[in-house]
Amino acid sequence: MQNFEYANPKTIQEATALLGASWSDANLLAGGTDLISLMKEELATPKRVVSLKGIKDLGGIHKSGGGLRIGATVTFDELLENAAVRAEYPSLVEAAHGVSSPQIRNMGTVGGDLCQRPRCWYFRGGEGLLGMKNGKSLIPGGENRYHAIFGNGPAYFVSASSLAPALIALGAKFKLVSASGNREVAADKFFVAPQNETTREIVLAPNEILTEILIPSAKGVKNATYEVRHKEALDWPLATASVALTMKGNSVANARIVLGHVGPVPYSASAAEKWLAGKTITESVADEAGKAAVADAKPLSQNEYKVQLARVAVKRALLEAGGKKA
């Protein structure tokens, strides 16, 4: 770990003033469950670490408009215990439960989950975000069992966020604040597939802070998350699906289906969403929707199984949202 300056601001304004134009100037510290290991591996080498823990305005969950405003430093545990979240957003609760380490649920934050770096073992092993060697990616010809089945490169890692698919399906917006102003970004526009080693997988700039997450009301929106995981104990999901269904009587008026851990960004299954409109959720409809959701998958040499897992995740999430036990 390289030496760094540690700053502990009390307000968002103070914090943004401490950030720089480059990721090597300053990094934000919330729960630290990712940043500390990145710094130990020298994958992050900031000159300054800006702690967000002392900033009260970044915490708390409260009603806002018809929906909910979740502070970026709310922990998984706080999210799981919140009555309003539990009442209206089961998909978010299920996604947070998927973070199966009590230690990470205690320390890890909602903002940190959305901003964490990919877990690709080539990236974490020091081969770069895209794992390029001599102008060629190591991943298609390498050990890619946990890698992307969507996207055409050059990024083959999978987005690591547990909450993103649910937040995208629910139509959340993220508020980003810098010294020069604020902006709101739709959750699905927050994640980008980098085209080269120097760009990041999220639109957050080095001088910005993700301050809050705004989720519209989900009254009458049936929502669920299903994740396929190998282990019950600390582990990353192999594939997840979050669905949000606006109903008209017994049939689906509008569907959002978002897959996680299958591509460099959460994957919106738009063909399946369109196909589902007007349908009633049954076992076979859910199965067909799952099939449609993975129709465009392009698995790598070792991860064809993830196509099946993503399909099953969609099916089971739909059945769960539809009140039919998967």
């Binding site: 199966s100 974490r124 092993g125 390498g142 050990e143 190998h230 282990k231 104990a233 990353w236």
Partner: peptide, 23 residues
Amino acid sequence: MDQQTGRVLNADMEFYKLAGIAD
């Protein structure tokens, strides 16, 4: 093992998977 880099890819407790109590 990764034939390209010659290294162990999961020399950690994250992807070197061990069972937890629930498993």
